[in-house]
Design a protein around this nucleic acid. Structure first.
Length: 232
DNA sequence: AACCAGGACGTGA
DNA sequence: TCACGTCATGGT
């Protein structure tokens, strides 16, 4: 078993299934998470909600995003067409808690235009990357959690964790890290559905773990994954 | 009070 | 290509 998959197993054993992506109206859990239930998103509305959250969560905490989504939900506007019908000024106020509301409002409205041209088709990664405001992480977030595609989502925590143990270079680029992890996981997982679930859980687990040990410097203090290194 | 959060883009060298 | 500034709110 390779080191990456060992890390995944340790984190899963420690924290359990994370049930990402959290949804406002999940009906499964109070907080919107749905551990051990991979039947989400259930419809076009929920797919859009994940896309929306993926854009809103750029460089912010998800608790802030939840406020924005709740604001929209209470205005009965957690919907791509309803957002379009909203005065942009009001839309910006509703998503204000997530920060960068001017940029994000434009990004989202532009994404909605694209979203409507899809008509239930799964977007290509390249198509998403061509949209303003959607970089590699947001694209993979949308593909992995909104469309259940086998695209691993790399974030700042992933970079910190993997570079901390020398698995990747400290200033490795996004695609390098993504490729490395996907290759390692694919060595262990062949079934495509399982692969998607592992990608989803792994990213969520990395976030859960890193919030504890890789948020403030010095990074990695108390990180029990060091035990894996000792067994190499 | 500084720093970071489930980043992306524009600019100048 | 890459380092750096900008976008903005909210929590520690």
């Amino acid at each position: 078993m390779n080191t990456t998959f060992k890390i995944y197993n340790h984190l899963y054993k420690k924290y359990g299934p994370q049930g990402w992506w959290p949804l406002i109206d999940c009906s499964s859990q109070e907080n919107g998470y749905h551990p051990n239930d991979y039947s989400f998103p259930k419809n076009t509305q929920q797919i859009f909600e994940v896309c929306l959250g993926s854009i809103l969560t750029q460089n912010t905490t998800f608790t802030s995003v939840t406020k924005s989504l709740q604001n929209l939900y209470h205005e009965n506007a957690l919907d791509s067409q309803k957002i379009r019908d909203l005065p942009i000024k009001k839309f910006k106020i509703l998503i204000k808690p997530s920060g960068y509301f001017n940029q994000k409002a434009e990004y989202i409205l532009n994404f909605i235009d694209f979203f409507h041209t899809l008509k239930n088709r799964i977007p290509l990664r390249s198509e998403l990357l061509d949209l303003r405001g959607i970089g590699p992480e947001t694209a993979d977030s949308i593909l992995l959690f909104a469309y259940n595609q086998a695209e691993f989502k790399v974030d700042a925590y992933t970079n910190r964790l993997f570079s901390h143990y020398g698995l990747i270079d400290k200033n490795a680029k996004y695609d390098e890290i993504k490729n490395f992890i996907e290759t390692q996981i694919k060595e262990e997982i062949q079934d495509k559905q399982t692969l998607v679930h592992v990608y989803q859980e792994f990213h969520a687990l990395i976030v859960a773990h890193s919030k504890k040990f890789y948020s403030k410097k010095p990074y990695g203090v108390g990180c029990f994954l060091v035990d894996i290194q000792n067994h190499l």
